[in-house]
Amino acid sequence: MTNPAPTDRALVWHTSSYSNGAGGECVECAITSTRAHVRDTKTVGGPVVTVAGSAWAAFLQELKRG
């Protein structure tokens, strides 16, 4: 699901550890108690992909498995 970032509270964004500042393909994540929000570092005012926390946890587990 893609939607604008929530405006009712400030999100704390964390840049990917793979971001090198050279303009590559990088993302930022903001995690809340129930959701994970992901956006492009080059378009911070653009769309945000928001998923349930459980879906985000499952996604991360699959990434770790390779």
Rank of each mutant, 00 (worst) to 15 (best):
A10N: 14
G53F: 06
V44N: 02
V27H: 02
R9F: 12
V12Y: 06
T50W: 05
H14W: 15
G46Q: 04
T50N: 02
L63E: 14
H37W: 09
C26D: 04
A10K: 09
K42N: 03
S16N: 02
G66M: 10
P47Y: 00
T41S: 04
K64T: 13
T41E: 00
N20K: 09
T32I: 07
Y18F: 08
P4N: 03
W56C: 05
C29Y: 07
G21N: 05
W13E: 10
E28F: 07
H14C: 15
A22I: 13
E25W: 08
R65H: 15
S19Y: 09
K64E: 07
L11M: 05
V51H: 01
V51G: 01
C26I: 06
H14A: 15
L11C: 01
T34F: 03
V48H: 00
S54T: 12
S19W: 03
V27P: 00
A57Q: 05
G66F: 05
L11T: 01
R9M: 11
T50Y: 02
R65F: 13
R9V: 11
T43Y: 07
D40G: 02
P4W: 02
G24W: 04
T15Q: 10
V44W: 02
Y18H: 09
G45S: 08
P47V: 02
W13N: 10
G66P: 01
T34R: 00
P6L: 05
K42Y: 01
H14M: 13
R35Y: 09
G46H: 02
R9Y: 11
D8Q: 04
Y18G: 10
L60S: 14
R65S: 14
L60D: 10
L60C: 13
P4F: 05
G21Y: 04
T2E: 11
T41G: 01
S17Y: 06
A58T: 15
F59A: 09
R9I: 10
P4R: 00
R35N: 12
A58I: 05
T7A: 13
W13V: 09
V38H: 01
T7N: 11
V27E: 00
P6T: 05
G45K: 07
N20G: 13
W13M: 02
G45E: 05
V44I: 12
V27N: 01
L11F: 04
H14K: 15
K64M: 12
Q61T: 14
S19E: 09
N3I: 10
S17W: 10
R65T: 15
R35L: 11
G66K: 00
V48C: 00
G23P: 06
E28R: 06
A30T: 04
T34Q: 00
A57M: 10
P4E: 01
V38Q: 00
L60F: 05
A52M: 06
R65A: 15
N3M: 13
S33P: 07
E28A: 09
H14D: 13
S33C: 06
V38N: 02
P4D: 04
E25C: 07
N3G: 13
A58K: 03
S16L: 03
A55G: 06
A57C: 13
T50S: 05
K64D: 15
R9K: 12
P47K: 03
A10F: 14
L60A: 13
C29W: 04
G23C: 12
T2I: 09
T43P: 01
L63A: 15
